[in-house]
Amino acid sequence: MWKTLRSLPRTVWLIGLISFVNDSASEMLYPLMPLYLASVLMAGPKALGLIEGVAEATSSIFKLVSGVIVDRTKRSKPWIVIGYLLAGIGRPLIALASSWTWVLLIRFTDRLGKGLRSSPRDVLLAESVPADQRGITFGLHRSMDNAGAVVGPLLAALLLSLNVPLRDIFLWAVIPGVITVVLALCLKEPAREASVIPKKFTWSMEGLPPQLRRYIFVVGLFALGNSSDMFLLLRARDAGVPQEQIPLLWAAISLITTIFGTPLSALSDRFSRKYFILIAWLAFAFFYMAMSLPNIAIWMICGLFGLYGLFKAATEGVEKALVADLAPPGMAGTAFGWFNLISGVMLFPASFIFGWIYESYSPTYAFLFSGSCALCALVLLAIWVFRANAPNQTA
């Protein structure tokens, strides 16, 4: 694995570095959002669910748009630069928000930037390496991304321990925002094959193979149960985890994902990717079912959050590598666009429904709903997407 890592091209490492810096800023603020909304703007779980749902749905729609544009223009870099620029502008503005509706608008801008950059970035990664290095490439990217998610919460915990106001912490995000834009300007486009996509784009997934369509559909069902991770932090706080330890708990998840993301994804280059995804989705369902326990202890939450980190490590890179495996030549942008659209747009109903159940009934029913969606998706993935007559999906 180490020899393969050293042989990866400069573009892969540069994209990983950009994601590291960007996520250091993003994840410094992410675990503070529920606290900021609740303690400063006096907004509850319903508002949180609406904000995250709208933000992620926006991101998902533009992931498809940018993916299709990349297939037609054969250029990824401009959209990556614009995406990081919008994120760098939007995040610090949360400090100036006077109500949760302003936070909604700012999060919309931030997620618009993510939507414009994500599919072009995934295409750039997939086309920078041969097929038998896709797993380790996406795994490395996710590991470096999650390394930033370790640094960010640690910075947040440090600033909170120094009694820095929540509003001021959001202002610090402007510095990494500038750095990511400068680094993105240093990216270079790879040589690309001639396009074989349909001349006119349609919303019917024209040109994508049936197995990829089935896979995207099941990913959407799974995403219906995968609401915003902010609810996990809210659940931890409600269960008695001290406020100053919430960022540390989130950092621990990211650390586990950072350590195990690359080696697990690298293994998927040698063995069937489907087993990694099936086992990880089963772990996710168990995690949400266990989090539904009414009187869950803090030590149980810590252990379950560790399991959640392993789930993320085993899926974040492998799921995207499988999309690249199934995508036809010249349609990687469209394939990633549809994958990102469906998996992300479902976060709106997922977060809204989860927040509504959480506040109107109880956290128990909310987590049971998510776990049930995951189990249904797991069954369909095993018997419908990875059926016996389908080709074994390895790189």
Rank of each mutant, 00 (worst) to 15 (best):
S19Q: 11
G337Y: 07
W356T: 07
I216D: 13
G90Q: 06
L41N: 00
L381K: 01
A332N: 09
L278F: 05
I51F: 07
L5M: 13
I298P: 03
P391T: 02
V151T: 10
A184R: 10
S195D: 07
S227L: 10
S343M: 06
A147V: 03
S370D: 05
F62K: 04
L185I: 10
L93T: 00
K312F: 15
L85G: 15
S195N: 14
P294F: 00
R214W: 06
P153W: 07
N22T: 01
Q245F: 08
T262I: 00
L35K: 11
F284Q: 03
R142K: 05
H141K: 07
T262Q: 01
D168F: 08
Y215H: 14
A314E: 07
F217P: 12
A157W: 13
Q211D: 10
A184L: 14
S268Q: 11
G225M: 01
G371Q: 11
A377Y: 04
R111P: 08
A149G: 14
L41A: 00
L249H: 12
A374K: 09
G333C: 07
A335T: 12
V54G: 08
I136F: 04
I179C: 13
W102H: 03
G207Y: 05
A324K: 04
A149K: 13
T73I: 09
T4A: 13
P198R: 04
G261M: 01
P31I: 14
A55H: 10
P363W: 03
